[in-house]
Computed example of a mutant assay.
Amino acid sequence: MKNPLDSAALDAAIEIVHRAGMPGLFAEVRDGNQVWRGAAGVADVATGRPVTADMRHRVGSITKTFTAAAVLQQVESGHIGLDTPIGRYLPKLVPGERGDAITVRMLMNHTSGLAEYLPYAYPSLKAYPALADTGPQSLDDHRLTRFDPTELIEMGVTAPAVGAPGGTPGVYSNTNYLLLVQLLEQATGITAERYITRNVIERAGLRDTELPAGPHVNGPHSQLYEAWFGMIDPPRDYSVYDMSWVGPSASLISTVSDLNRFYGMLLAGKIVSPSSLAQMQRTVPVVSQEGKTIDYGLGLHPMEGPGQDTFWGHGGTVWGGGALAMTRADGTRQMAVAVNMQRWNRLDSFGKPQPHPIDDALATLYRVAMYG
């Protein structure tokens, strides 16, 4: 059964997330021609400036869907082979036997076995995800650091492997998508930012979406508050941050309206071909950065709820901010939600994140948004 938009229920659900402890959040839900936009809480805890539903926001790894779509366009044009070893394209970055064994597809669905470079780039996070031993010091140290992507890739490639190439479950790793960025640049002869902007962002008609060059968010936006599992108290604003630590694998700035438009067009076969979309929706088990096993395709993952409706999209986090965008497989129902605080769960004595009222409140908001 399809449920029409219930504005009152959505208004109540978003307000409950704010009351549970989220400084501010905003969302857009679409059902056919019906559109609900809502916001609750503040964009700036110091001034009390409210959040609004049209704010621009760092959306983290939602960027990976954009990057994957760009790579698949190049697969369609014959410049990249989905099952070609990455060593044929980037022998210096992934040398030897691993370069021969790891394919482009394995990078896209996180089954390459390549480790995450993040704990090596951010020394105080060395124990991540063994969280009790980490600290937020590196977040401040690298606020304006300009990282070289090939150096980050080298950290991930030289770190101990987290699995055999093609083995499952895969392990989610930003190293994979930084390699895809390098591959895209080699195949197109221009920067990945420029290619994605021209062929994905502009093709989808997105007006408030960009891969920024500098550390600032242009236009109306919220501050972004990082709590780092209660170790930063009160949470600190990281809205000004050099995003070269993830580059075009997680640095996108967008709006909830633009995200819904993008995923609607992607699932309608208007960004990549229907056969490429089918490849994106072929999933394998992958262990997420939170340690949960999820189904993951090529820059897309499904969410299933009551009634067996499958939604496709991606989530993302940056220091202080996060977003989730999901669209029903038939394109009729869509949700995009943005929050301005991250890692609100405190840790127990074993270093495991404890449940927080925000978790349940967000789960309820997602359920009301997707299923009514």
Rank of each mutant, 00 (worst) to 15 (best):
D6T: 10
A9K: 01
L10P: 07
D11L: 05
A12P: 02
A12K: 14
E15F: 09
V17W: 03
V17E: 09
H18S: 11
R30W: 07
G41F: 00
A43C: 09
A43V: 11
G48E: 09
R49P: 00
R56S: 14
T63C: 10
A69L: 06
A70L: 04
Q73Y: 03
Q74K: 12
V75I: 09
V75G: 04
V75K: 03
E76R: 09
S77N: 11
H79M: 12
H79W: 08
I80S: 05
D83Y: 08
D83M: 10
D83L: 07
I86V: 09
G87T: 10
I102Y: 04
I102V: 14
V104M: 03
N109T: 04
L114T: 02
A121T: 08
S124H: 13
A127P: 08
P129K: 02
D133C: 05
G135H: 07
S138R: 03
S138D: 11
S138A: 15
L139Y: 02
D141A: 15
L144T: 12
L144H: 13
T145S: 06
D148G: 01
P149I: 05
L152T: 00
I153K: 09
I153S: 05
I153T: 08
T158R: 14
P160W: 00
P165I: 05
T168E: 14
P169I: 00
S173V: 01
L183C: 02
L184S: 13
T188I: 04
G189V: 08
T191N: 12
E193I: 00
R198W: 12
E202A: 14
A204S: 12
A204R: 08
G205Q: 04
L206N: 07
L206P: 09
E210R: 04
L211N: 05
G219R: 06
H221A: 13
W228R: 09
F229I: 12
F229H: 15
G230Q: 15
D233N: 15
Y241A: 11
M243E: 13
W245K: 07
P248S: 14
L252F: 15
V256H: 13
S257Q: 15
M265A: 13
S275W: 11
S276A: 15
M280A: 10
T283W: 13
T283H: 14
S288Y: 04
L298M: 07
L298I: 08
M303D: 03
G307W: 10
G307R: 14
T310G: 15
T317R: 03
W319Y: 12
G320K: 07
A323D: 08
L324G: 02
T327N: 02
A329C: 03
R333Y: 06
V337T: 05
R346H: 15
L347C: 06
A361L: 02
L362E: 04
Y371R: 08
Y371K: 07
